[in-house]
Design a protein around this nucleic acid. Sequence first.
RNA 1: CGGGGUAUAGCGCAGCCUGGUAGCGCAACUGCUUUGGGAGCAGUGGGUCGGGAGUUCGAAUCUCUCUACCCCGACCA
Length: 568
Amino acid sequence: MRVSQFLLSTLKEVPADAEIISHQLMLRAGMIRKLAAGLYTWLPLGLRVLRKIETIVRDEMNQAGALEVLMPAIQPAELWQESGRWEQYGPELLRLSDRHNREFCFGPTHEEIITNLIRHEIRSYKQLPANFYQIQTKFRDEIRPRFGIMRAREFLMKDAYSFHLTQDSLQATYDIMFKTYTNIFNRLGLKFRAVIADSGNIGGNNSHEFHVLADSGEDAIAYSTTGDYAANVEMVPILPPTKPRSQPTANMVAIDTPNQHTIEELSQFLQVEPAKCVKTLLVQGEAGLVALVLRGDHTLNVIKAAKLPQVSSPVTFAEPAQIKDTIGCDIGSIGPVGLEIPVLVDNSIANLIDFVCGANKNDQHLTGVNWGRDLPEPQLADLRNVEAGDPSPDGNGELEIARGIEVGHIFQLGDKYSRAMQATVLDENGKNVTMTMGCYGIGVSRLVAAAIEQNHDQIGITWPQAIAPFTVALLPINMHKSQRLRQVAEGIYAKLTAVGIEVLFDDRKERPGIMFADMELIGIPHRLVIGERGLDNGEAEYKGRRDEKSQTVPLDDVINFMQNKLKI
RNA sequence: CGGGGUAUAGCGCAGCCUGGUAGCGCAACUGCUUUGGGAGCAGUGGGUCGGGAGUUCGAAUCUCUCUACCCCGACCA
């Protein structure tokens, strides 16, 4: 491709509303342009990257035996009513009606559509298992779309759905998909981790998320430094201590703590470390308030809490007025001693002795508090978020925390949809059996942003070769002034193209600084520079986008050199 | 949906407080010079100042209202 024939719309300045680096770089590199909140046009440069990712995803899915289909983006309400999600899904579902006032939605996902298709197409167990996928535009009316393509409302997704007679068969396909996803992210050239995940509201049990590792990621994942364990931090169980508790050494004393509300203030004031303080959070329960007690330096995991039978889901914190009414004091002075509402205590403080907590009276705290003596033995629950250094739940090593961007998610759905929609096959006894299902998603457009979050430097994008929009940037210096240089450049361009290398040939009449800056911004992995100076010595100059220094290459060896570099 | 903010040329912004007919940098276009790291000089084009209403002799500027967008929160692949 010649730059003069391409739309290279780079920006020197960062658009004001772009928060994260991938969004800034995608705008500056001229990959996307915003149309409205969460809606983006892909410019030629960005689309090339998107298509490369799509191609790799499609190739691996095909190799895994999945069959590609393409389902409509607009879906009739009846199917969603049948599955029960027309009511459940809420405002994120974009609903519309046609000229006959029939109701539709713009599909945020396709379980209903594929289940409807398969219940008509597949009648016999002999046709199972089967796995169908599509790469298609989804729409989710997010409350707050942000970060450009990372959390857009309209986005490109690969979604796959598998159908089975048995759980064993589902597990086998699930394992194949796990392997396939691993292959995909490896081929894309991204550093990633597969982690145990919450299955959220899609339903089902067994579930893994695939995260591209990036410091800017919105999700935190915990992984064992020595073992294989890895999970979304939401999901890491923390077990109660196995050893017995030590004996108390202090008596319970009430002390005045004027205007000390937060754990930080309190631990400063009393000269006690936060780990010896206890904080008590009040949340709405099934009947009135419930107290959740955590160590001062720990944080509540709302997903774990919401799963407890005593706690309302989703977790809702008590209103200050309600606390005053129930306990008689304000936030900041609450403690578990003498509370008359249900008290759930985090596993991690089962063995805490001589601790500090609120006295349920404003401006007072208790020190030297001990379980079983000053208050009943704790009713334990797993309440807190994991932290770096916690033991791995499988007993193998310690956990480290990393940040990631969720780009893939695989679920075992079970019969949630197939039962609601009566997707059955005849088994070998001629009996109707409800199929069991799996579903497997990859955020194709999000992957573009995630790849940039992971692969950039001060001056621009540093694409992994597999998904770069072009492979080689060919930069002739001041070509307009030298016929000889033009001929050499055209020759190299033609030959590289002929051997199947995607070359971006900068044939603009621009100064070298502009060409370098543009090519570095858009992240072309390999750069060949030729100039009058080098021609005299029969040399070209090569530099990899991530290399520190450039190297010279004999002009008549350039094609070979590049082929070797690219291993083709 | 709650809280905060912004809206002036393609992009980044000033002007608004104190009303007097719109400006800067970048980008674009033309010419000349320059040419191995986002050039210099000269010139040119481009704006219903988000929409509507009001106050006023006069509104980008003051008032009201609507809309869009951004940030924080809850929610979520």
